[in-house]
Nucleic acid binder design. Sequence first.
DNA 1: GTCTATAGCCTGATAGAC
DNA 2: GTCTATCAGGCTATAGAC
Lengths: 200, 200
Amino acid sequence: MSIQATTTTMNTAQIILSNAIPLFASFGYAGVSMRDIAKEVGISGAALYHHYPDKQSLYVSAMRYAFADKAAGITSALDGGGTATERLERFITGFTKLMADDPDFRALLQRELLDGDEERLRLLANQVFEKPFQAMTQLAEELALDCDAHMLAISMAGLVLFHFESAPVRQFLPGGLQGHDQPEVIAQHVIQLLTRAVGH
Amino acid sequence: MSIQATTTTMNTAQIILSNAIPLFASFGYAGVSMRDIAKEVGISGAALYHHYPDKQSLYVSAMRYAFADKAAGITSALDGGGTATERLERFITGFTKLMADDPDFRALLQRELLDGDEERLRLLANQVFEKPFQAMTQLAEELALDCDAHMLAISMAGLVLFHFESAPVRQFLPGGLQGHDQPEVIAQHVIQLLTRAVGH
DNA sequence: GTCTATAGCCTGATAGAC
DNA sequence: GTCTATCAGGCTATAGAC
């Protein structure tokens, strides 16, 4: 299913990207230098420019690579049959697990929402969110007839994402930190909230 | 109510912060140079170092300044009387308006969640979120007895915030962009979702 | 309290050998 | 395809005059 599932064959251009992705996720575009990436890969800074013409191109390629196949992963839980509620539960569970398993993707997503220019936001929209968003909107339509389906789809994603996004500050708030970071707990909470809200 | 409400008197140190805040909100810590800030204020770069010992100190002071009195603004809607549902509606409406009216605060919050070190996250927790979070948790307890109150409080905030956070990418998704950015529309949607979810 | 000038380092990017 | 060496410029931060 994955892009490089066949063998461990990975050319240098891909190795560069897979080393750059966690750096950009942790420190952002301006917080990572070409030398940082080169050091991580284990080559000289000059060698990077044989594979990518400049830093911006490397970054865009890294985003393209990090976002590849994510749409399928998000949508897959919505493909199977079952009632609307069952598909909602599968989607929330799968989406939560995906975010928990790939913190780099989550961080890059948040960073692009803050810093992305039009080209990169279009990439994010077309490559990652278009199909899942359509499927989620359709599910939302089946769930709640009198509530805006687009907004409900956004709310579904936001509910899951913010429990991860807020984790760094929750650890310093009183009463937090009792399993509220576990994906199963988050998914169950969000499912409970949403199924009650849509169950007329 | 506000910090500098008495007169337009503002010393240079404060003028520096109020000019630095929108820059840091737009471009992040690593994306803003001391020269950028100096240029915005209209003084030389060296003059900044008379007021702040280094860039990090200036940044922390800017965060402290940007976050000042935000706790009161968030909590105020929860102070008055009325039923739990009425207070929920007031809180969501007020919180949504606050986020819509202060995009710099929203961006800085998101950036701190991504990049904040322990010191800054503690500042955010103590200065901004501790009191509102406690009040929101109490409200959540009154609303839903069998649902974790802390998680419901996080969900309330996340629902509102993600509708703003996702706006940059929503504009490139099909079917978006029909008033879904207006604070009144967002607040109404979130209130509808939450009141249904908690109305056993 | 602000200025000009500058130190010392890091940055993105290039030249040319191998 | 990778290296070393390097350029031109930006960076934080400081020195010292006014």
